[in-house]
Nucleic acid binder design. Structure first.
Lengths: 157, 157
DNA sequence: TTAGTAGCGAAATTTATTATCAGTAGGAGG
DNA sequence: CCTCCTACTGATAATAAATTTCGCTACTAA
C-alpha cells in the first residue's frame, strides 16, 4: 500500500470522503520538497500545477489531515501556521537560527522522561508537546556578530 | 526603588523616553490580576479606566517592553499573542489543558542540561527556548472523556 | 437512477497586527 | 525657565492570515 493509499484509507476510516481535491492535495504534500509548509505554499503549488483547488479547500483539508493525524501543525514563526507530515517513528523538535532562519530538527528521547515527571506532578495526561530552541548556527556566529550584511533577523518566541 | 521605577529606569537606560502613556501602561501591567495577557486585554483595561491611550500605542509599548526584557512574548494559543512580566528568577514553561484552557507553569531546570547537549551536537549558541506541553488536567479527564458539557476545545500546537 | 449530504470554489468577512501621518510633548541644552 | 528637536502619540487605514458563507457539485448509499 502506497503512502497515498494509506492516507486515503485513514480518511475513509474517519468517515471522510475521498474527493478529487483531497487526492490532489495529498499527492502534492507527498511531492513537496520542503519539510515544513504553510497552507498558502500548498495553494500556490496547486495553482502552478493548474489544479482548480480553492484556498478554502486547502485550509479545510489541512485541518482535516491534522485531526486524523496525517499532519502536524506547528508554530515555527509568528506569521503563519506551518504543517509537516506526521511520522510516527520520528518525534522531534526544532532548533531555529535567528540569523539565517535555518531550521534543524532533533529527536526528543530525553524530553520524554521530563514529561513523565510533569504528568505525575500536575496530574495531567499529556497528549502533545512542543519544544523549540532559538539561537545562532555556526555560520551566523562567525559571520560578524552583528547581523551585518545578513538576511532579516527573526524574532524568537 | 519600586517595580515601576525599575522599569522606567530600564526604559531610560535603553534610550526610550518616559511618556505619560508608557507610565500608565506599566502601572496597568503591574496591577493586572492575570499572569498572561494580550494587547487587546491591556487596551480594554485602559479604556475602562478612562485612560486615553490608543491601541497602536499599546502594541508599540508592549513591543518595546519585550525588546528591553521587561516582558516576555508567548504563543499560548493560536489566535493572539500573549505577554507576561519577565521574572529573572523564574524561568518556566507552560502546561496547557486542551479541555478547559487552564495554564500551569513549571520550572525548567532539567531542560537546561538538554540544551547544553543540543548546543554541542549542532554547534549552535542557544539564546532562547520554548517548551509547551498540551494535555488534559485532572478535572477534564474525569468530566466524561468527550468534552461534553464542557467549554470550547482548544487546538494543540 | 436518484436523493441526500458532505464537500466544493469564490468571495466576503473577521480578527490581530502593523503602517501611516499630522500633531504633541518629553527632555536636553541653552 | 524657555526652546527646539525629534521620538512618540492617537486615529485610522492597510495588511494578511484564516474562517465563514453560500449556491452549486459530485460522492455514495439506496
Amino acid at each position: 500500500m502506497s503512502r497515498q493509499e494509506e492516507m486515503e484509507a485513514r480518511l475513509v476510516e474517519e468517515n471522510y470522503k475521498i474527493t478529487q481535491p483531497r487526492r490532489i492535495i495529498l499527492k502534492t504534500l507527498l511531492e513537496l520538497q520542503e519539510k515544513h509548509f504553510t497552507a498558502e505554499e500548498v495553494y500556490s503549488r496547486l495553482r502552478q500545477e493548474g489544479a482548480g483547488v480553492g484556498l478554502a479547500t486547502v485550509y479545510r483539508t489541512l485541518e482535516v489531515l491534522c485531526k486524523i493525524g496525517i499532519l502536524n501543525s506547528l508554530n515555527l514563526d509568528e506569521e503563519s501556521r506551518c504543517y509537516e507530515l506526521e511520522d510516527v517513528d520520528d518525534h522531534h523538535h526544532h532548533l531555529i537560527c535567528l540569523g539565517c532562519g535555518e531550521i534543524k530538527e532533533f529527536s526528543d528521547e530525553m524530553i520524554k522522561d521530563f514529561m513523565k515527571h510533569i504528568e505525575d506532578e500536575y496530574n495531567y495526561k499529556v497528549t502533545d508537546h512542543l519544544l523549540k530552541y532559538y539561537g545562532y548556527c555556526s555560520k551566523c556566529r562567525q559571520a560578524g556578530e552583528g547581523n551585518e550584511g545578513g538576511e532579516e533577523e527573526i524574532s524568537p518566541k
